[in-house]
């Protein structure tokens, strides 16, 4: 019976539809610190990733699900979080006169969005909409590898491929023509402490940050998972022994 069950389980996994991406996209497979059942985020890389997001991507992409207080997960303490929030101007209101007003951000605020609405975002980007990055690492198949490959995937178009105005050639993007201009060239951000600021270095920092944003509780999930699987493993063994014992006199 158990044999049959595992066959069915495997079959179910096989039938899960793979994300239908173009077959000729180049996906680089990387070893992420957060993959595997014991994987954890790299706090220093996430802090650098946030810095890169803020200095490079935030001009076009919002992260509307992330509040400053969430940055406690990146290893910032309360004072640091307040200081980061205060560097932003946040709209608040209406006040007693019915007017909206600007004030420095506080820890409870979400990161302010770059555009007032989607139409404004399209208007500034040749009609293309830069997607919100809060969940992007889970909204694409093989999220982390795909994001890394995308950011490091800008190349000269191969001969014979026409690249229209306002489009750019990217080896990892399905269809290869993306409306986002190459965001990273290396040395785009100045890291304190001399971390790797090549395209690949910044990209992998961004992936750490974006993966955390998409699933802030991943470490907790895996920690509970290890305990649960251990407990249930013991339970399986004990219940099997009990079953053998009870059935001994029938067999």
């Amino acid at each position: 019976m158990i044999k049959h069950f595992s066959v069915v389980m495997i079959a179910l996994f096989l039938t899960t539809p793979a994300m239908a991406a173009g077959s000729d996209v180049e996906l680089q497979k990387l070893d992420w610190s957060f993959s595997g059942p014991f994987g954890t985020f790299d706090k220093a890389a996430m802090q650098r990733g946030f810095q890169a997001y803020r200095e490079v991507c935030a001009g076009c992409h919002g992260m509307k699900l992330i509040a400053f207080r969430n940055f406690a997960d990146l290893g910032y303490n309360n004072d640091e979080i307040k200081a980061i929030a205060a560097e932003y101007e946040v709209q608040d209101g209406p006040n007693d006169d019915g007017e909206m007003f600007m004030r420095p951000g506080i820890a409870a605020d979400r990161i302010p969005l770059p555009y007032a609405n989607d139409n404004a975002a399209r208007a500034s980007n040749n009609g293309a909409l830069p997607p919100d990055l809060s969940l992007i690492a889970k909204a694409r198949g093989n999220g982390p590898d795909y994001l890394f490959s995308l950011l490091a995937g800008y190349k000269d178009a191969p001969e014979g491929t026409a690249v229209p105005d306002g489009m750019y050639y990217n080896a990892a993007y399905p269809g290869h023509l993306i409306a986002m201009p190459q965001p990273l060239y290396g040395e785009d951000v100045t890291y304190s402490g001399g971390a790797d600021d090549s395209i690949e270095g910044i990209s992998s920092d961004l992936v750490q940050f974006l993966m955390w944003a998409a699933e802030p509780k991943m470490e907790v999930r895996k920690r509970i998972g290890v305990a649960a699987v251990f407990f249930l493993g013991v339970f399986v063994v004990v219940s099997y022994m009990a079953k053998r014992r009870v059935w001994a006199d029938v067999h």
Partner: peptide, 30 residues
């Protein structure tokens, strides 16, 4: 009880380590 224990073990592995295995990335797009 034994059968349920085996099932729960497999279920826990899916829930805690592959929560998106039977989902689809599109579900994370608004």
């Amino acid at each position: 009880v034994f059968g349920i224990a085996v099932f729960l073990l497999l279920l826990a592995m899916v829930v805690f380590f592959f929560p998106n295995a039977m989902g689809h990335p599109d579900n994370y797009i608004p």
